[in-house]
Structure formats: C-alpha cells, structure tokens
Design a protein around this nucleic acid. Structure first.
Lengths: 233, 233
DNA sequence: TGACCTTGTTACAATTCGTTATATTTTAGA
DNA sequence: TCTAAAATATAACGAATTGTAACAAGGTCA
C-alpha cells in the first residue's frame, strides 16, 4: 500500500518546502506546484488524496481551482489562506473546500488536519462528471440528461447547479437557505421565486408528475429532498 | 425531518442557543446538552450526523467524549474550544475529531464547517430513517406512510415531526409542554390548538378510529402516549 | 442584424398548515 | 348521577409558502 499523496499548490517556495517537509516526515508522498496551470496538468496523471490550495495564486483565482477540484474530482481540498475574514472562510467552505487553514500556520496542525481528511474516508478522488440515478444519466460535461431508453435532454448551467446539489446530497433535506448560498443567490426575496423556477424546469426535464414527484420532493416550509439512488462515475 | 441532526455539547447555555439558532436557520435539526452524561444518554436513542463538542465540561473531560464518539459512533466530530494552542488542536484532531474551531467563533463559520463535514459523506449510520410499527412503515426520507397492503400516504413535515417524536418514545407519556418544546413551538396559547390539529391529521392518516384510537392515545390533562411496537432500521 | 437560448421576474394559481370557531369529551364537584 | 367547566377534536378559513406560465432582458452565433 503506497503512502497517501498530498498535493501542495502555493506560490511561495518557502511555504511549499515547509509543508512538503512536514508531510513527508509524517509519511506522506507530496507533489508541489507554484501555479494552478501546472497543478491542473498534473491532475491528468495523478490522483491526490488531499489537495492543499493557497488562494492567492499568480495565474488564477484560487477559489476557482477549489471549486473545480471539489466539483469534478471529489478530492479532499484544504484551503490555506492569508485572508482571515470569516466571510472568506465561509465562501471557501461553501465552494466545496473541506477545511480552511489561516496563515501563518503550524506545519504540525496541517499534518493533523490532513490526517483528519484521510480518516473521513471520503471515496477517494472520484470523478464527479457523470452520475446515474433511477434510470437517468446526468453528464455534467455535456450538460445532458439521458434516460434509460437513450434519449437525451439538454440542461442549462443553472439547472445543472441545482441538479448537482441534489446529487451530492441525496435523501437529505436541503433547506432553501442552503440552496440559496450554494447557488450564489443574494438574500433577495425574489430569488426565492428564481429557485422555484429552476426546480420547476428541472422537474419538467426529469418528467416528474407535478402532483406526485418521485425524485424531487418539496417539504413545505423546510426545503427540498432528492430521492434517488445516486452513483457517480 | 430528514434534515441532518447536529448535537451541541457545551456547558454555556448562551453558546448552545446561539449555535442551535444558527443551525436551525440553516435547516438542521439540533439537540443541545450541557453535560456529557446527558449527551451520551441521548446517543442511545439518536444518531447524530455531526457532533459539536466543547472541551471544557463540568462532568467529564471533553476529549474523552470525542475519542469515544469517533471510535464508537463513527459520527463526524467538531471540537469547539477556548484552548487555542497548536498542541491542543493537534491532539484533538489526532484523537479522532474531524475539525477544531476556536472560541470565540462566528456561527456562520460553524454552519459552513458542519456542511463541509456532511458533504464529505462519511458513511454515516443512516439509521432512524425508516420505522415499522403495527403494520405500518414510516419512511422519513420520502415523507411517506405505507400500510401492510403496500398503499402509501404522504405526510407533511409538521406531521412527521409529531410522528418522529412518538416513534422515538413509544409507550411513554409525552406531555404537551414536552411536545411543544420538541416541535419548536412558542409558548403561545394557540400553539396548543396547532398541536391538536397536527395530531388529528396524523390520526386520520393512520386511520385511527376517533372513538377508540389504537395507536395515539390521549391522556386527558397530561399528554399523549403512542402505543405501538416500533422497530427502526 | 435577427433567430434562438438562457434565466430572472412578474403575476397568479395551488397547496400547506396554523388559526379560529365550534363541537365533543372528560373530569370535578354537587 | 348530573352539570358545568376545562380540555381536546375537528371543520372551515386564510395567511404564508410554493408552482408555473408568460414575459422580458441579456447573451450567443451565424
């Protein structure tokens, strides 16, 4: 059994070596990158168990990297950032990060938090581009739904956001506030209607019976729940 | 209902209510405890998805609680502590905690971190989602009652709250004040009527004979008692 | 430019569930 | 046992929540 692989994405060489040393002392394999571009290229050939990502990068916004990682790779992501505001942490976590460490940090704590991520035995680096559920296949790359007969229906970006939210937490109540935050909506009352409309459109594409939806159920006053046996691939 | 259950273990009432309010606003169910003893007793009947644990407790060392939780329950554990030393954090995490938040904290960040734990989808004991009793099956995921002939009846969120309360404590008197607290009702007089109505509607769905209810019995002046052989799965 | 697509907004329909009103049951006390 | 008051049950109503059709604003692409 090989040691778990931890990637480090940070533009400061000093931090990279500090982290790499600490992690390797703890028995992990590491790969370090200074630019998002290099890092994403490496993902083609490596499947890390945990990814450490600094938010301030020369070539890209770190949050974009985090979002894509969490969305498409399903890898454990730990943000390392100098931005200490609560709001920064909340948005980082909402975007899919599993943890958020503030600079300056102690390498020992980073190691402990990496171990915590590994313990939580999240299904390792499982791609999140295609999901199957109840006779349907959702291809997020192609923005396409395929039914069991092979017939395809395109879905839009907005619909895909909702669908992914549901597929990420099947059989769990998703409150409207949670949905609002995940969809980046402002706490505007009329956004409530927008959410309804997105869901209504998604339901139509999933051919739900409006009187008796089988997949997306409304819980009056509480939120929505997606009932479906989901498997990602 | 199927909202994830978050437990709060902290000796300061102010912190308990602050956390409970924020989490309930976010759509979670919560249970709060001031002492480890009460908390561990509750684990006999509840299976939380995430446990928030303060380390400074009157009756036990919080770390012991954390350790036992992580080992035996497999639930996600988030430590909340005033001890800010790196060494404290490292030992907390090494003992099995999934996250470590330092006081004072912002409730929004706690909510975000709770969500992060849920996303990582530890194969949480997905128990207490279906209960069988006297020929009925209650599926809390799907908000559906199924009779022995396989016929389904949907129940609402409000009805489900009452039903879960009964199924959690069968054959035990449940006082109206107790019910009121569990249902998050204000100590408003008219909420008494609302409770009656919820129960009345639930009785209808369970096809109770109004003159002679078999499952939900009214104890005049005291409360209700649910008679039924309940088994959860 | 113009046809087409996406998505939020508006307006109104449908549903839920607490509230009110009224009926029924239970208990205390004569 | 009988009666009145208190407690509970339920029918009916309405405010709040959610669903969706229709429209409008903006974007894209030939």
């Amino acid at each position: 059994m090989t040691a778990p692989l931890v990637t480090i994405l940070d533009d400061e060489p000093a931090i990279r070596t500090m982290l790499a040393d600490a992690l390797e002392d703890a028995g992990f394999r590491t790969l370090s990158f200074g630019r998002a571009r290099e890092f994403e290229a490496a993902l083609q050939t490596h499947t890390p168990d945990v990814c450490l990502v600094d938010l301030s990068l020369p070539d890209t916004d770190g949050l974009t990297v985090v979002h894509r990682l969490a969305l498409e790779q399903g890898a454990s992501v730990i943000i390392i950032s100098g931005r200490a505001q609560v709001q920064d942490r909340v948005t980082g976590l909402e975007l899919g990060a599993d943890d958020y460490i503030i600079k300056p940090f102690d390498p020992a704590e980073v190691v402990a938090r990496v171990r915590a991520r590994l313990r939580s035995n999240k299904p390792v680096t499982q791609s999140r581009r295609t999901a199957k559920f109840n006779g349907w296949t959702a291809q997020f790359d192609a923005y396409t739904l395929i039914d069991d007969a092979g017939e395809t229906t395109p879905f839009s970006h907005a619909e895909g956001e909702v669908l992914r939210l549901f597929l990420d937490s099947p059989k769990r109540l998703i409150s409207r506030t949670q949905m609002q935050e995940s969809l980046g909506g402002v706490a505007n009352e009329s956004f409530d209607r927008a959410m309804d409309v997105r869901i209504s459109r998604l339901r139509t594409k999933l051919r739900e019976d409006p009187k008796n939806p089988q997949l997306i159920k409304t819980i009056y006053g509480a939120g929505y729940i997606f009932l479906g046996e989901v498997s990602w691939s």
